[in-house]
């Protein structure tokens, strides 16, 4: 296994972990934060696949816009939480 493949495996493991977190969190704000981390790592993965333009688009839309839309939606509806 080359170092490059090992590194890409680490990034993919991070993607899988944060993807599972997005689904399993009951607190929706935490899920939005995990989704932000997911799109950040996805941008890194696009970068690794030699597509810098897609990476820029993913960073803008995923990290900036989607997080903002999720937060506005949570503010407008309800945030399920047990205690904090």
């Amino acid at each position: 296994m080359t170092p490059y493949l090992f590194f890409q495996g680490l990034v993919l493991a991070g993607l899988i972990v944060s993807g599972i977190l997005v689904v399993t969190f009951k607190d929706l704000l935490a899920a939005a934060i995990a989704s932000g981390a997911f799109s950040l790592l996805l941008a890194l993965e696009f970068y690794l696949l030699q597509a810098p333009d897609v990476a820029i688009a993913e960073a803008g839309i995923g990290a900036g816009l989607t997080t903002a839309i999720f937060i506005i939606a949570i503010r407008g509806t309800k945030r399920y939480e047990e205690e904090e």
């Binding site: 990290a63 997080t67 903002a68």
Partner: peptide, 13 residues
Amino acid sequence: VYALLSYVGVLFI
């Protein structure tokens, strides 16, 4: 670009 845009998400949260 990434450093500037991810900062927006953190500020929003």
